[in-house]
Amino acid sequence: MTEQIFRETTAEPRTQSVPLAHVSLELGHLYMEDFEEGADRLREHFARVKPWADAAHAAAAVMSGGGRARVSTCFLVDDYFTQFSSPRELVPLLLGEAKAAGLEIDYLARESACAQADGVALAAAVEGRLVESPAEGSDGTRPGARETGWLSNGQRSPAAGTAEAMGRVVPWTPPSEAGARRHSIFVDVELWSADPRRTWSCPFLASVWQLARLGLLRHRGNPVLEPRGLRPDQALPETWSALPPLLRLNDSAAPFAAYRTTSVLPSRFLPIEHAVRVILGQVDADSGALRQVAERAAGEGIQVPAEIADRAAYVFYPGP
C-alpha cells in the first residue's frame, strides 16, 4: 500500500466528519496497580461511579433540550506504561463488574492507542499542533515545547546565578501563570521523556484521549481511532496488541465522539487532568474538525464552548 502524503496544491484539502453524541462519559481508567488489588477494587470503583454517571445522563438530557440525549460510555485500560493481564481475561471481568453496578461500557480503549493507532502516530501529531501561549515579551525566538519536552501555563522562573563567567548575578524571580487572577498557579508539564526511546507522559496521552473523545483528531483529513467491534465468531484475543485500539462493545451505542466529555475518576487523577487542561489550552486543533463540530452543534441548537479545555467536565470522587 502506498500512502498518499502529498497532493497537488490545486486540490482542496477536505476534512471528513465523524458522528457525534451529546456526551462522552468515561467510567474509569485502569492501571496495573488497580488491577492487582483484585475484582473488589473494580466493584468498589463502579459503585462509586454509578450515581455520578446517572447525574451525567441527567445533565446530558438538559443539554439536549429535553430530547433523548445521546450519551456514550467508555473505559480506558493502560497497555502503554505496563502491560498486564489479557483482553480475554480482563474484558469479561470488567464488563461483569460494571453490569453489577448497573453500568454499561460502550467502548473500550487501549492507552497505547493514544500514542499510535492503526499505524498513525497520534501523539506525535498532537505534539506537532502545540502552539505555546507566549509569555509577555516573547518574540518567538525561544526554543519551544517540541524541543524541550516541557509545556507550562505561564512563565518559568529563570535559573538563578550567573550565566557567564564574571557576569552579572541574576536575582531569582518567581514563575507566573499567564492570565492569573492576582496570584499564580504555575504548572510545568513534562510531555515526554527520551530514555532511550521516546515515552509520552500520562497527561499528554490523556490530552490525546480528550481530543479523540471530542471528535477533533484527523489524519490528513480522515478520521482516526475509529471504533471497531469484534465479529460474532471472534473471541477476545490473548494479547493487547491484537485487540482493536478502540473496541465497540455495544452495537446500539451512541457515537464514541461527542460535543462534551465527562470523566468520573478518583481524586488522585486531579493533577493529571489539570495538566490536560494546560495542554488542551495550547493545541491548535484541526480547523476543519472544529468547524464541523461547531456547525453540527449550531444545527442541533447546542452550546459548545469555544475553548477545547472547557468542553471537558470531571467528577473526582474521594479515594485513591
Partner: peptide
Amino acid sequence: DGGEFAIGKD
C-alpha cells in the same frame, strides 16, 4: 565584555 559560559544541549 562577554565571559565564558556553561555549555548545554541547546
